[in-house]
């Protein structure tokens, strides 16, 4: 069941983040320099285990089918479970998002919201039973059905021609596309200020 989370000012969150870094540095007798050792902070200081899994399968939540990015990035069941598509060793390009999700779950939700979590010993492990996670973090609030509808709409105006997707613009988008193309050409020819092309003013 959704739980109401009290609003926190940005300054409060920043203060807590700074406090967490200071606590970690003091406890481990280290000087923190970028990149922030977020895995060590989460696993060795906050004592939260990290796991990777297919979050959509786990939570029986269908993927939106738009690209390969998951809608659910991570969740907490006293352990942080990260969607396996963010595995930084298998997908090095996801390193940033993986680190961000870890910090978001551990440094954010665990630090700031754990007093709101159910104090149910059964939640110690995700795999002890069908216990819902304390926090589920999604990349977007848009419903998959809505995303699918938009994608269908876009693709219904496209055709496949010699290995390329060709968009067919209908009125009034044809005029808009034409205007944009002219504007882009003008920008290429006459430098950075040409974005203010008069073509947008019309007749």
């Amino acid at each position: 069941m959704p739980k109401k989370v009290p609003y926190l000012q940005e300054e409060q969150i920043e203060r807590d983040a700074a406090a967490l870094l200071a606590e970690f540095a003091q406890t481990r007798s280290v000087v923190i320099t970028p990149p922030i050792p977020i895995e060590d902070i989460v696993e060795k200081y906050l004592k939260l285990g990290i796991e990777f899994d297919d979050m959509h399968r786990l939570l029986k939540y269908p993927r939106s089918d738009l690209g390969f990015d998951p809608d659910i990035l991570g969740a907490i069941w006293r352990r942080i479970v990260i969607d396996e598509s963010l595995d930084p060793e298998e997908n090095p390009s996801k390193e940033g998002r993986y680190r961000f999700t870890l910090a978001h779950e551990g440094g954010g939700h665990w630090r700031l919201h754990r007093h709101l979590f159910a104090k149910d010993p059964a939640q110690v492990s995700l795999f002890n039973g069908p216990v819902p996670p304390s926090v589920v973090c999604r990349s977007s609030q848009a419903k998959p059905r809505e995303k699918r509808r938009l994608l269908n709409f876009v693709l219904s105006n496209c055709s496949w021609d010699d290995g390329e997707v060709v968009a067919t613009f209908r009125q009034p988008f044809d005029l808009l596309a034409q205007t944009t193309a002219i504007s882009t050409r003008a920008a290429t020819n006459s430098g950075p200020n040409s974005a203010k092309s008069e073509i947008w003013l019309g007749n």
Binding site: I50, F52, D53, E90
Partner: peptide, 9 residues
């Protein structure tokens, strides 16, 4: 990979 080890664990 961490995902593989996670599943083994």
């Amino acid at each position: 990979s961490p995902t593989y080890l996670s599943k083994v664990e």
